[in-house]
Protein backbone atom coordinates (compact mmCIF):
# COMPACT_ATOMS: atom_id res chain seq x y z
CA UNK A 1 0.00 0.00 0.00
CA UNK A 2 1.12 3.52 -0.76
CA UNK A 3 2.87 4.85 2.33
CA UNK A 4 1.94 8.51 2.05
CA UNK A 5 -1.74 7.79 1.67
CA UNK A 6 -1.70 5.23 4.48
CA UNK A 7 -0.26 7.75 6.91
CA UNK A 8 -3.04 10.19 6.15
CA UNK A 9 -5.77 7.71 7.04
CA UNK A 10 -3.99 6.58 10.20
CA UNK A 11 -3.47 10.14 11.44
CA UNK A 12 -7.11 10.88 10.73
CA UNK A 13 -8.18 7.75 12.57
CA UNK A 14 -6.15 8.57 15.67
CA UNK A 15 -7.35 12.18 15.79
CA UNK A 16 -10.95 11.10 15.33
CA UNK A 17 -10.63 8.54 18.11
CA UNK A 18 -9.24 11.14 20.49
CA UNK A 19 -11.97 13.62 19.56
CA UNK A 20 -14.59 10.93 20.18
CA UNK A 21 -13.17 9.54 23.41
CA UNK A 22 -13.07 12.94 25.11
CA UNK A 23 -16.80 13.75 24.82
CA UNK A 24 -17.88 10.15 25.49
CA UNK A 25 -15.71 10.00 28.61
CA UNK A 26 -17.00 13.34 29.88
CA UNK A 27 -20.59 12.12 29.58
CA UNK A 28 -19.82 8.73 31.09
CA UNK A 29 -18.16 10.21 34.15
CA UNK A 30 -20.08 13.48 34.46
CA UNK A 31 -16.70 15.01 35.29
CA UNK A 32 -17.69 18.55 34.33
CA UNK A 33 -20.89 20.58 34.75
CA UNK A 34 -23.41 19.96 31.92
CA UNK A 35 -22.97 23.37 30.27
CA UNK A 36 -19.22 22.93 30.03
CA UNK A 37 -19.60 19.37 28.75
CA UNK A 38 -22.00 20.43 26.03
CA UNK A 39 -19.56 23.07 24.88
CA UNK A 40 -16.75 20.54 24.68
CA UNK A 41 -18.98 18.06 22.85
CA UNK A 42 -19.74 20.77 20.30
CA UNK A 43 -16.16 21.83 19.79
CA UNK A 44 -14.93 18.24 19.56
CA UNK A 45 -17.62 17.50 17.00
CA UNK A 46 -16.69 20.46 14.82
CA UNK A 47 -13.02 19.56 15.04
CA UNK A 48 -13.71 15.94 14.23
CA UNK A 49 -15.78 16.93 11.17
CA UNK A 50 -12.80 18.94 9.96
CA UNK A 51 -10.52 15.95 10.62
CA UNK A 52 -12.79 13.77 8.48
CA UNK A 53 -12.87 16.38 5.72
CA UNK A 54 -9.11 16.78 5.71
CA UNK A 55 -7.82 13.24 6.32
CA UNK A 56 -10.54 11.01 4.91
CA UNK A 57 -12.03 13.19 2.18
CA UNK A 58 -8.67 14.81 1.40
CA UNK A 59 -10.22 18.24 1.22
CA UNK A 60 -7.62 20.98 0.96
CA UNK A 61 -7.18 24.33 -0.71
CA UNK A 62 -4.59 23.05 -3.18
CA UNK A 63 -5.97 20.00 -4.94
CA UNK A 64 -9.69 20.18 -4.25
CA UNK A 65 -11.52 21.73 -7.22
CA UNK A 66 -12.73 25.17 -6.27
CA UNK A 67 -16.32 24.41 -7.23
CA UNK A 68 -16.41 21.62 -4.64
CA UNK A 69 -14.90 23.85 -1.95
CA UNK A 70 -17.34 26.65 -2.76
CA UNK A 71 -20.23 24.20 -2.70
CA UNK A 72 -19.18 23.02 0.76
CA UNK A 73 -18.90 26.55 2.09
CA UNK A 74 -22.20 27.55 0.57
CA UNK A 75 -23.84 24.48 2.09
CA UNK A 76 -22.44 25.43 5.48
CA UNK A 77 -23.84 28.91 5.10
CA UNK A 78 -27.24 27.62 3.99
CA UNK A 79 -27.38 25.15 6.87
CA UNK A 80 -26.45 27.87 9.30
CA UNK A 81 -29.26 30.10 8.02
CA UNK A 82 -31.88 27.35 7.79
CA UNK A 83 -31.09 25.59 11.04
CA UNK A 84 -30.26 28.76 12.94
CA UNK A 85 -33.32 30.51 11.59
CA UNK A 86 -35.55 27.53 12.36
CA UNK A 87 -34.25 27.25 15.88
CA UNK A 88 -34.72 30.98 16.53
CA UNK A 89 -38.22 30.94 15.05
CA UNK A 90 -39.41 27.81 16.82
CA UNK A 91 -37.86 28.83 20.13
CA UNK A 92 -39.55 32.22 19.85
CA UNK A 93 -42.86 30.58 19.01
CA UNK A 94 -42.44 28.22 21.92
CA UNK A 95 -42.06 31.17 24.25
CA UNK A 96 -45.13 32.96 22.95
CA UNK A 97 -47.37 30.12 21.84
CA UNK A 98 -46.44 27.34 24.27
CA UNK A 99 -45.87 25.00 21.39
Amino acid sequence: MEQHGLRTYLIGFVLAVVLSVIPFWLVATHALPPRRTLLIIGIAALLQVMVHLRFFLHLNFRTTPKENMLALMFTTLMIFIMVGGSYWIMFDLHQRMMT
Binding site: M78, I81, I89, D92, L93, R96, M97
Partner: peptide, 18 residues
Amino acid sequence: SATVWLHHFFTMGASANV
Protein backbone atom coordinates in the same frame (compact mmCIF):
# COMPACT_ATOMS: atom_id res chain seq x y z
CA SER B 1 -34.53 34.46 -1.15
CA ALA B 2 -33.30 31.89 1.37
CA THR B 3 -33.51 34.36 4.24
CA VAL B 4 -37.09 35.61 4.13
CA TRP B 5 -39.32 32.56 4.53
CA LEU B 6 -41.06 33.58 7.73
CA HIS B 7 -43.02 36.26 5.89
CA HIS B 8 -45.38 33.49 4.82
CA PHE B 9 -46.44 33.02 8.42
CA PHE B 10 -46.13 36.41 10.11
CA THR B 11 -49.45 35.69 11.80
CA MET B 12 -48.46 32.35 13.27
CA GLY B 13 -47.45 34.02 16.52
CA ALA B 14 -43.77 34.90 16.48
CA SER B 15 -42.61 37.93 18.41
CA ALA B 16 -42.23 41.40 16.93
CA ASN B 17 -38.45 41.05 16.72
CA VAL B 18 -38.60 37.91 14.63
